[in-house]
Nucleic acid binder design. Structure first.
Lengths: 181, 181
DNA sequence: CCTTCATCGTTAGCCTCCTAATTATCCGCG
DNA sequence: CGCGGATAATTAGGAGGCTAACGATGAAGG
């Protein structure tokens, strides 16, 4: 998102004016957002070359046997389950499934038991697209992470997990307590 | 983006089937994206409570004296410079400035020297909004990073920088070479 | 001078994503 | 049975993001 990461001296200077500004925290934060965004873009670019978006890819992956070969038969999920799984709202999922269905990668089936419900499943075409995309997708992640040793990766995931736990915490941020009330 | 991070055993199993899949690389990648996204959401939620979006906030920040108190007088930038600075296209910047101007946070001025150009500057209202938002914004970043020691932060930024360099590399990913040609 | 080319901002059309409201259906309770 | 409440998917309306194309202007060369 942010293209220009502020330089460190700059942060130090600004922190004089704002007592709430923690320079090292800000630096980590900006680097995290920037790197995440850039990594995102790398795979997004690849997916775009196959005319599929990140959102669509997420749906396809969710459909494609969670954990691969979990259950026999076709994998079919409701839009609600897909939304939950990929982290978007159900309204958004309607749009995503619309696009995927229009492109023939996915099919909607009415649920005979509960007529409110619908199940979404992969078509052959969707499956084959996925199998065409995945090897390169995996290669790309491996390439991206190549500069990190196995030890560094462990450390990294540990640090990310700490932040993730806090960021995803329902307790949320301290929106009241402050040094500037 | 991805809500359910695959468990490690699952990745190991899948890697049998896909020689290109590097489990630890995938794990790092998914954690990075997920954490970045979650951190993004935290500040986005805060900004939303002031009726401003991330994109708009970025523009305001860019306008608000890069590095704070850099130059005397008002800070004014062209849409192109803003787009460059915040990492969006010029077309998108037009829309962002439209919204900000409609909300009275920003003003467009024609450039007398070059009639193709326009300069964008902060209004008093925009400035005061920013000064109202920033303390809490800083506090939020500090809160988010609180679980990390100063040493961990240094390590973390180092790792992020390594990845960033690679991800932002114009050389891009190895889209040709592969074990599945 | 005038033609060509680069550059600026904007427009048009599309996709993703959101919230809120709508419609259809199921379920349980009197 | 019939009615209210929960839940499914969808629609409506808005915003940000992109690419591509456009109109206006400036700069440079013949």
């Amino acid at each position: 998102m942010l293209k220009n990461l502020p330089r460190y001296e700059c942060l130090l200077e600004a922190s004089k004016e704002f007592p709430d500004l923690d320079p090292s925290a800000t630096e980590v934060f900006l680097h995290l957002l920037r790197t995440g965004d850039e990594a995102f873009r790398v795979v997004e670019t690849h997916l775009a070359s196959h005319d599929i978006t990140q959102g669509g890819f997420g749906v396809l992956m969710a459909l494609w046997g969670r954990c691969r070969g979990n259950q026999p038969g076709r994998d079919a999920l409701s839009p609600a389950a897909l939304a939950e799984h990929t982290g978007v709202t159900r309204a958004t999922m309607t749009g995503l499934v619309d696009t995927l269905e229009r492109d023939g990668l996915v099919r909607r089936h009415p649920d005979p038991a509960d007529r409110r419900m619908v199940t979404v499943e992969l078509t052959r075409e969707g499956e084959s697209l996925l199998e065409r995309i995945l090897p390169e997708h995996f290669r790309q992640m491996a390439w991206l992470m190549a500069p990190l040793t196995e030890t560094e990766r462990k450390t990294f995931v540990g640090l990310l997990a700490k932040l993730l736990q806090r960021a995803a915490d329902p307790a949320e941020a301290p929106l009241a307590t402050a040094s500037t009330p």
